[in-house]
Structure formats: C-alpha cells, structure tokens
C-alpha cells in the first residue's frame, strides 16, 4: 500500500507549506564560494585538522547562535553559517588567526577593486 494524496488537498495546508521551503532539483550551491567553503571543510577534516564531531558541534553552534539572534533561515543561508564555523574552527585550532584572516580579506578586496571587470582577481606577489 503506497500512500498517495492528491497534491491539491495538501496545498490547503498553508501554514505547514509556507514554513517549509521546497525544491525539486535546484542547484546544490548557489554561488562558487559556497562550494569552495564546503570543500575546504571536507579537506581540512581529511587532513586531520579537526574531527568530524568537532566540525558538527561548531557548525551547530553557529546555526544556534544565528537563530538566537532572530535570523530565520529557509536553508539559503546555510553556507554562511558553514563559512562562519570554518573561520571559528581554524582560529580555535590556531591554523589561521582572525587578525591574519581579516587582513587577507582586505587585501583581496583591494585586489578585486583594482581588477578590471571580467578579469581574474589575483593578489600581488609579496
């Protein structure tokens, strides 16, 4: 016995539906940075920089914190939390410090501003 309901009957359940974003086969990453952040966490784990339970706990904490500040997430902001967890964990593991990271962000920002549209952004050699 398989359960199959006419979809229309359930569309009436507006409360349930409006709160639950649905997708069929949307892209798994919405921007390249999401994919890069995802891959960096997997690779750092594979190299033993952190254990998977450590990763999951850090990510869960970022998600919980974002929620506690009232930021609702329909799933589209997941990789923002993923990236925040990554930054937190590499700092805690003393792999990349917060100050180094924000300095490098500024350097990339300067480089991106100086790059004509359509050209790859590169950091000047130091």
């Amino acid at each position: 016995m398989t359960i199959s309901c006419p979809p229309d009957a359930n569309l009436a359940d507006l409360d349930a539906l409006s709160a639950l974003p649905r997708d069929d086969a949307g892209p798994v990453f919405r921007a390249p940075w999401e994919a890069q952040a995802f891959a960096m966490a997997l690779e750092l784990h594979r190299r033993g920089v952190f254990s998977w339970p450590e990763w999951a706990a850090t990510l869960a904490a970022e998600i919980a914190q974002a929620r506690s500040t009232g930021e609702a997430d329909d799933g589209s902001r997941y990789y923002e939390r993923w990236l925040a967890a990554l930054e937190t964990l590499v700092a805690r593991k003393q792999v990349v410090g917060t100050a180094d990271l924000s300095r490098r962000v500024d350097e990339w920002d300067v480089a991106a501003r100086a790059t004509p549209h359509g050209r790859p952004v590169v950091l000047p050699r130091r």
Binding site: A31, P32, W33, E34, Q36, A37, M40, Y79, E80, L83, L86, E87, V90, V96, D100, L101, R104, V105, E107, W108, D109, A112, R113, T115, V121, L123
Partner: peptide, 15 residues
C-alpha cells in the same frame, strides 16, 4: 566588487 562571503572564502583559501 566581491561579496562579503566570497572575499572571506578567497582569503581563507589563500592562507
């Protein structure tokens, strides 16, 4: 020119 998260990812990746 690059969005906040994109910049942070580039920075972290290069480091």
């Amino acid at each position: 020119p690059l969005s906040g998260p994109a910049l942070r990812v580039k920075a972290l990746e290069s480091l």
